[in-house]
Amino acid sequence: MTSKNAPELRQFWHRDQIDAELSRELIDCWVEVSNAGGAVGFPFPPVTADEVGPAAERLFAGLHPDRSRLVLAMVDGVLAGWLNVRRDPHPLVAHWGTLHHVQSHPAFRGRGVGSALMDHARQIARADMALEQLHLAARSGMGLEHFYGGMGFEEIGRRPGVLRLAPGDDRDEILMVLTPL
């Protein structure tokens, strides 16, 4: 990827930072990724903006500088991907965070958007949120464990067959961690 087309990475930590246009772009991206088979919270495509919109609003409402950050990748002014970094405020687990909804728009795949998002999320987790480790769950059968493994995440367990996508299509949930940040 040339520097001209490198993603511009932005983070948001309050609902008021998300305007109607950005909200629409994020929802549209989520719909496109879901309908392309992405494991991002809606396992049974096709989905519509009417279905994804309420989930996006819940995500926006939960944004908070200490507990939840939204990270966006823009390429030439277009939303190319996004993810959510969260921490549980309970003192026993407040030192680690979880990545949710990691996605790159199908039109931008293979251009380093996912890697740029993951690198930036790691920096935010460490420097801005004072986290010590990041966790994520990935669906087996998608090759995601290889992508995340290349980013330094290690598999720490599996929940065998916990995800039933269709009769006869049960998938493992792969639990991964990145530590230290």
Rank of each mutant, 00 (worst) to 15 (best):
G41E: 06
F42E: 04
F42M: 03
P43F: 12
P43N: 13
P43Y: 15
F44I: 11
F44T: 13
F44Y: 14
P45M: 10
P46Y: 14
V47I: 10
V47R: 08
T48D: 04
T48K: 07
T48R: 02
A49Q: 03
A49N: 05
A49Y: 00
A49R: 14
A49F: 01
D50H: 14
E51Q: 15
E51A: 12
E51G: 08
E51R: 07
E51F: 07
V52F: 14
V52R: 01
V52G: 04
G53E: 12
G53P: 05
G53V: 06
A55Q: 12
A55H: 11
A55C: 03
A55W: 09
E57F: 09
E57M: 09
E57A: 13
R58E: 12
R58A: 13
L59S: 07
F60G: 04
F60T: 05
A61G: 09
A61C: 11
G62I: 12
G62L: 12
G62T: 08
L63M: 14
L63A: 06
L63D: 02
L63G: 04
H64E: 02
H64D: 11
H64C: 06
P65W: 08
P65S: 11
P65I: 09
P65Y: 12
P65D: 09
D66V: 15
D66L: 15
D66N: 15
D66W: 15
S68Q: 15
S68V: 03
S68I: 09
R69G: 09
R69K: 10
R69H: 15
R69W: 14
R69S: 10
R69M: 05
R69Y: 06
L70W: 08
L70A: 02
V71G: 02
L72D: 00
L72P: 00
A73W: 00
A73E: 01
A73M: 01
A73Q: 00
M74A: 08
M74N: 06
V75D: 00
V75C: 03
V75P: 00
D76H: 10
D76A: 12
D76I: 01
G77N: 01
G77P: 01
V78L: 07
L79G: 00
L79M: 03
L79C: 05
A80Q: 00
A80C: 01
A80K: 03
A80I: 01
G81W: 01
G81N: 02
